[in-house]
Design a protein around this nucleic acid. Sequence first.
DNA 1: CAAGTATGAATGAAAG
DNA 2: CTTTCATTCATACTTG
Lengths: 187, 187
Amino acid sequence: MEQQTQQQIEDGGNNQAAGTNNRWAPTPPQLRILKGLYYDKGFKYPTPEQIQEICLHLKQYGQIEDKNVFFWFQNLKARERQKLKEFRNVPVGGSLDLNFGSTGSTSTDRSIDLNFGLRVGYGVDGSIMEQRGEYHQEIETLPLFPMHGEDIFGNMNTTSEGGSGYGGDSRISLELSLNSYGDADIA
Amino acid sequence: MEQQTQQQIEDGGNNQAAGTNNRWAPTPPQLRILKGLYYDKGFKYPTPEQIQEICLHLKQYGQIEDKNVFFWFQNLKARERQKLKEFRNVPVGGSLDLNFGSTGSTSTDRSIDLNFGLRVGYGVDGSIMEQRGEYHQEIETLPLFPMHGEDIFGNMNTTSEGGSGYGGDSRISLELSLNSYGDADIA
DNA sequence: CAAGTATGAATGAAAG
DNA sequence: CTTTCATTCATACTTG
């Protein structure tokens, strides 16, 4: 997890100057076309060849490389999926919903992509690799919040966190190690 | 560095009026809990499941969404690291070390893992999801872009685009008509 | 009111 | 594909 080795990528081709803007940003026309491909045409998995072609066309609207197109699609896919995962309980918008109990299942999600791991065929030799199913069981459910009771603290000072950072600052420590599995939580 | 107690005090229930204030701001209790998790418990990398759980509990103290929690952790981590990086100015004064004598790794092509050609095993069963037309047994300049063009107008210069600047995007506005999703952005 | 800063949000780029 | 890092934009709030 400690992969601190990122910083600024060592540009090897068209670097400009250390500190300048190296990061590609889609120009409005490029964005429009990319979105059109993704949403309108349903292009979620462009092949390398297609990436090249897309990139070629987009070059008319500004500098762009293959990897930019590649990342763009990859990021969009990843984030759409991430939303599906996180927005299991999207706010209903307007009404504050403190609905505890019942883990979602009320649908409540936009109509985004739905074809998940439908990708098969990795082995060119003919052997299809396993395709990621989705049989995830309760991963752990570690009691992040053993019980409801933050109210006892909830009335602390509000604006006095003087000093920057907390490196060394002794804050109140949450007593989160109470019962072992109790969690008479929601439900 | 100096956080001038700028957390908006007292929000309690719902500070989000439709249209006026869209940006989430943690309520004091929420902040306290988040900080407690981060600093006291060392929760720097909450999984999506944990994010959901945290969010669920924080909802008792005001509206909050999963992505708020996600961004909160993300930003805190990023900024702490950023602070540390800022500190690495070597005030040696005079002895500016421009050591380039690395072991021949000078080029360092940033060729990332462009695994473009690594997964071209599709077609073994012909179940690609590219739902454009029928199947294609030979990928070769397939008309991703139905010949028209954006190029006939915007065809200015494809290779030596001035770089990131690209000046204004005041190109033609007769692009593909395949967009119907709010590209409203940037502008 | 302008400038400065803290921070939520967005996204390109990588690493795993 | 999944998760994290890094940079940047947007905006709330503070201060001079």
